[in-house]
Design a protein around this nucleic acid. Structure first.
Length: 429
RNA sequence: GCGAGCGUAGCCAAGUGGUUAAGGCAGCGGAUUGUGGUUCCGCCACUCGGGAGUUCGAAUCUCCUCGUUCGCCCCA
């Protein structure tokens, strides 16, 4: 019988890797919490329509990458390919705008896109995202960017670059598109085949083409900055000014175009300059003033971002060793009286706040010591029938080899000083 | 959806048509029946991702398929 394997594009996150995930989640939670953002958890699947309307029918994500199926009630449902649409749906449906003029939210969880797998790209992947709903203030744009930077900095990541652009209002874009097409049409023959198709369908996407020939042509293309109306222009300048005030470096990139239809004004991306393959964007986002209304809510300004956690993990693994959780005691026991007692001892130590691993092998003490050593515990507790008869235990410090005998109850009574000792031993390493 | 490379144990691998598939790490057992990190010994792939074919004979050659890696595309 052949074994069943995980579905293509999915993978298991195993114990030796989980430390990174927990650390990352803890850092994110803490940074977002300090900025008064609240977590929101929305369903992993939604009505297909939510994404079709929210993200845009014409986008690749909706057009060819969604996990869409009919449920038993003949409803078309889709595994969420991104987080914002669901958050906005929840915001509207639960009337969150009533509870305050402004909502600051964050989420973390799996997303699904049917794409071909590649470095830093899977079919089930995880995103951390944050959204500010109900503010048009440019400070909101800057706040979310600052939070993203803070999270990445707290994780100790370097070599990242913040790319910034403004995609203006839909009207700005319409004007710009016309200017861009006017400029590119004479070069039509020289563009790569994909870009030739885009020229009529979505000319702005030509800007971020990776084709060298196309890039050369794009270099001298008109920039959207020259086609923003004065209001959009002013917003863009305010965002730049405030980022500078906060000491956040950014790189103006007129070719930064986001793939989802709902973005307006501020658009940004955080890219890794090294360490990732072709999929080098670790995070991206921007303002999406039209989305809430598009999904049936009232006109609401909003801004947010999402980060790809697998990509962050790739960088973390290159930058730092996995955080390990320190084990206090490893309990070794052998004998008909000692073995049942070892379980009670482990349990009472856990209740007293220690982390305790119990050896269940009942093999020779020598073998159990080897495992104790490998466990990385600060100390080993030895319980044989002799100790069991007297309710004592041998406490052996695995670093120094020092060993002492004491009543079992003493471990609990002196818990505070023992913890202090373990703390000092583990910090020295 | 397209292109290229790669699949031998939990991991890293040698092997490129000739009877029993090196080695290392990890794991398990023993030397050591109550004291660890060393050492030594033993065990650990009826089978080379899966299927079909060529051949007297296939891990090795051919085809299909699945997975994986790196790209294109797209995106976080």
């Amino acid at each position: 019988m052949s074994a069943i394997e995980a579905i293509k594009g999915t993978r298991d996150i195993l114990p030796d890797e989980i430390g990174y995930w927990q650390w990352l989640e803890q850092v994110a939670r803490s940074v977002l919490g300090r900025a008064a953002y609240c977590e929101i958890r929305t369903p992993i699947f939604e009505q297909t329509d939510l994404f079709a309307r929210g993200i845009g029918e014409a986008t690749d994500v909706v057009g060819k990458e969604m996990y869409t199926f009919m449920d038993k009630g003949e409803r078309s449902v889709t595994l969420r390919p991104e987080g914002t649409a669901g958050v906005v749906r929840a915001y509207i449906e639960n009337g969150l705008h009533v509870k305050g003029s402004l909502q600051r939210l964050w989420y973390l969880g799996p997303m699904f896109r049917y794409e071909n797998v590649q470095a830093g790209r899977q079919r089930q992947f995880h995103q951390l995202g944050c959204e500010v709903l109900g503010s048009a203030d440019p400070r909101a744009d800057v706040e979310v960017i600052a939070i993203a930077i803070d999270i990445l900095t707290a994780l100790g990541l370097t070599g990242l670059r913040l790319d910034l652009n403004s995609v203006g209002t839909p009207r700005d874009r319409q004007r710009y598109r016309a200017a861009l097409v006017d400029y590119l049409t004479p070069y039509q023959e020289k563009l790569d085949p994909d870009s030739q198709v885009r020229l009529t369908r979505n000319p702005m996407r030509i800007l971020d083409s990776k084709h060298p020939e196309t890039q050369k042509i794009v270099q001298d293309a008109p920039k959207i900055w020259d086609h923003l109306d004065p209001e959009s222009q002013q917003r863009f300048e305010q965002v730049q000014q405030q980022l500078t005030d906060l000491g956040i470096d950014f790189h103006l990139n007129p070719c930064l175009v986001r793939g989802l239809d709902y973005y307006t004004h501020t658009a940004f991306e955080i890219v890794a300059e090294t360490g990732l393959g072709a999929q080098n964007a670790v995070g991206g986002g921007g303002r999406y003033d039209g989305l809430v209304a598009e999904l049936g809510g009232s006109e609401t300004s909003a801004v947010g971002w999402a980060m790809g956690l697998e990509r962050l993990l790739l960088l973390l693994q290159q930058a730092a060793a996995a955080p390990v959780t320190q084990l206090d005691f490893y309990v070794v026991s052998r004998g008909t009286h000692a073995e049942p007692q070892s379980l009670r001892l482990a349990q009472s130590l856990r209740h007293a706040g220690f982390s305790v691993e119990l050896d269940l092998s009942a093999s020779a003490f020598g073998k159990q010591f080897k495992r104790a050593d490998r466990s990385g515990a600060a100390a080993c507790l030895i319980l044989g029938d002799d100790e069991a008869a007297q309710s004592t235990v041998q406490l052996k410090w695995l670093g120094s080899g020092e060993q002492e005998s004491m009543p079992q109850s003493q471990l609990i009574e002196q818990a505070t000083s023992l913890k202090a000792k373990i703390q000092s031993l583990t910090q020295r390493e």
